[in-house]
Amino acid sequence: MELLTAAGLSSAAGLNAYIPLLILGLLNRFTSWVALPEGWGWLSNGWALGILAVLLAIEVVADKIPVVDSFNDVLQTVVRPASGGLVFASGVGAQTIAVNNPDDTFGTSQWVPLVIGAGIALIFHLLKSGARPLLNLGSAGVAAPVVSTAEDGASLGLSVLAIALPVVVIIVVVGLGVVLLVGVAKLRPRRMRKEL
């Protein structure tokens, strides 16, 4: 179950880096739904939550503006996979692969969940960032706020679902990946035809 939760959270991080981190931190701080390993308590620190909230606000605004959203996606190519690695590593509770102490991460095999989470987030990020310029061109930028809102909603929904109903996550993650992949594939041939 922890792997499903972690996979769902890192997939959500590929769409929006800050939503799953903020949800994990808030739930760890204010509820009993999430109990982060000891070394990850900084995620629920008031300062960390405040910084994540500010970064989320900036991300939400920047991602709604055509052209700015594409530049934002370039910057997020590092941030989203890093976030995915963090939420995967902190969300996994199994002692065999959990990162219990971030200070010891690279001295042991504890780096493995970071890489897995970063890889999952990177896949979703690349699908998202590959579709966005095509959507902006095809709609003269009108699609940017609508698609961005849908992506933020998907990230929020997937984060909550990953924590509340992790069994359903695999279906949603695969479905979301297929929708993004098909969307990018359908948009690319249209663009090439228009250029000819």
Rank of each mutant, 00 (worst) to 15 (best):
I19N: 02
P20K: 02
P20D: 07
L21K: 11
L22I: 06
L22A: 11
L22W: 12
L22F: 12
L24R: 06
L24H: 07
L24Y: 09
G25N: 02
G25E: 05
G25D: 04
G25W: 02
L27R: 09
L27N: 09
N28E: 10
R29V: 03
R29S: 11
R29T: 09
R29D: 06
F30W: 13
T31M: 10
T31V: 03
S32Q: 13
S32I: 06
V34F: 12
V34P: 10
V34A: 08
A35Q: 15
L36N: 10
E38G: 12
E38H: 13
G39N: 02
G39H: 01
W40V: 04
W40T: 04
G41N: 13
W42V: 13
W42C: 00
W42K: 01
W42R: 08
W42T: 08
W42H: 10
S44I: 10
S44C: 09
S44H: 10
N45C: 00
W47L: 15
A48G: 13
A48I: 14
G50D: 08
G50K: 07
G50P: 06
I51M: 14
I51E: 12
I51D: 11
L52F: 15
A53V: 06
A53Q: 05
A53T: 14
V54R: 05
V54F: 12
L55T: 11
L55N: 13
L55P: 10
L56I: 07
L56C: 06
A57D: 07
I58H: 08
I58K: 09
E59R: 06
E59M: 06
V61T: 05
V61A: 11
A62H: 04
D63V: 05
D63A: 14
K64H: 11
K64S: 12
K64D: 14
I65W: 12
P66T: 06
P66D: 09
P66E: 06
V67M: 12
V67I: 14
V68G: 02
D69K: 03
S70A: 14
F71P: 02
N72A: 15
D73N: 12
V74E: 01
V74I: 15
L75Q: 05
Q76L: 15
Q76E: 15
Q76R: 09
T77H: 04
V79R: 05
V79W: 10
V79F: 10
R80E: 05
R80T: 04
P81T: 00
P81H: 00
P81D: 00
A82E: 04
A82D: 02
G85E: 01
G85Q: 02
G85H: 03
G85C: 07
L86P: 02
V87E: 05
F88R: 00
F88D: 00
A89R: 00
A89E: 00
S90A: 15
S90P: 03
S90Y: 04
S90Q: 02
G91A: 08
G91P: 06
V92I: 12
V92Y: 01
G93P: 09
G93K: 10
A94D: 15
Q95T: 11
Q95P: 11
Q95A: 15
Q95W: 04
I97C: 01
A98D: 08
A98W: 05
A98H: 11
V99K: 00
V99E: 12
V99D: 13
V99R: 07
V99N: 15
N100A: 09
N101W: 12
D103C: 00
D104R: 09
T105D: 05
T105W: 10
T105S: 10
T105C: 05
T105G: 02
F106D: 01
F106S: 01
G107D: 08
